[in-house]
């Protein structure tokens, strides 16, 4: 599987990052098999979080068996020093490791959170302390919030080394600032920040719960994913050719093998094909009456 420099971290990440949330829906034996499969396909960057059910616990056995082969990303939703420090210790314990390569601020959504994180007694103080102590190597941030807020975070956090945000052809077809993750990508590139793409496989929101009760959804994802091999492949190719360092799989374990396959076979996507996908999905979402042309 292709690898790319993760910003200036010094690590070359595979073009696919294993989103270990998938382990949450598997029994331990299945989780072990999943990690074996992912490693067998060459993936070297894993991502997990304490909020992904018991994914940390289920990752631990195989993580430790192959610790040297895995660049591990973890994250915290805590915004203040004490909380972040405690959560990092708890993750280390649950993952049965003494060391996390990449620790990320998880799910930045609001301006006031950024104030807290970057301010006195903010989470970043705990991150920096851990970095000085060698418990973590790099600091990252994840968000599926407003791109303008992510840009602001880049300005505020000088030692930010990676970003995780959505990259999806439906979103790429929208022009307004609220969907302008391309601007984030461009800025991250200028700053030497590594970039990880989420939501690459999102088709759209689930139907309303009146129409489809939550218990009847066929996938564990927060959104309805694409699930045919050809769609998975074009979504992967789109995200991987957008300039991102690495693309994270959809969370449902049933989709992981297909995404691994697409990642293994990835060999680029030209601009005409990228626009073709954006255009096709633009019309699917909001068909304009009498639209004969593209």
């Amino acid at each position: 599987m292709q690898t790319r420099a993760l910003g200036e971290t010094g690590h070359d990440s595979t073009v696919m990052t294993f989103g270990a949330i998938a382990l949450n829906w598997l029994e331990q034996e299945g989780a072990n098999q999943m990690v074996e499969l992912v490693l067998d396909r060459g993936v070297n960057h894993f991502d997990v979080a304490p909020t992904y059910g018991d994914a940390e616990l289920k990752l631990a056995p195989k993580l430790n068996q192959y610790r040297e082969d895995i660049f591990l990303g973890c994250k915290t939703q805590e915004r203040e020093y004490e909380g972040a420090k405690t959560k990092l210790e708890r993750s280390l314990e649950r993952l049965e490791t003494d060391h996390i390569e990449l620790y990320q601020i998880h799910g930045l959504e609001y301006e006031h959170e950024l104030e807290t994180i970057a301010g006195e007694d903010g989470a970043l103080e705990a991150f920096r302390e851990a970095k000085d102590e060698g418990t973590i190597d790099h600091i990252g941030l994840t968000s599926h919030g407003n791109p303008q807020l992510i840009l602001e975070a880049i300005d505020r956090i000088d030692d930010l080394e990676t970003l995780m945000f959505p990259m999806n052809p439906v979103v790429a077809g929208k022009d307004d600032d609220d969907h302008d993750y391309e601007a984030v990508l461009e800025r991250a590139d200028e700053e030497g920040i590594g970039t990880l793409g989420i939501k690459a496989f999102a088709k759209g929101p689930w139907p309303s719960t009146d129409e489809l009760p939550e218990a009847d959804r066929p996938y564990a994802n927060w959104y309805e994913p694409v699930d045919a091999p050809a769609e998975i492949e074009e979504r992967f190719d789109f995200a991987a050719s957008s300039g991102l360092t690495s693309v994270i799989n959809a969370g449902d374990p049933k989709l992981v093998a297909m995404i691994l396959d697409a990642a293994s076979r990835y060999d680029g996507m030209d601009e005409g094909a990228r626009r073709s996908l954006i255009e096709r999905l633009r019309h699917e979402e909001s068909p304009v009456p009498e639209q004969l042309h593209h």
Binding site: A273, R275, S276, E279, H283, E284, L292, H294
Partner: peptide, 20 residues
């Protein structure tokens, strides 16, 4: 330059041509 390759003829496009 190439704008689209391939050209996505979606259901909406097919329907618009059918309407003509």
């Amino acid at each position: 330059r190439t704008l689209l390759d391939p050209v996505p003829w979606t259901r909406a496009h097919v329907e618009a041509h059918a309407e003509v």
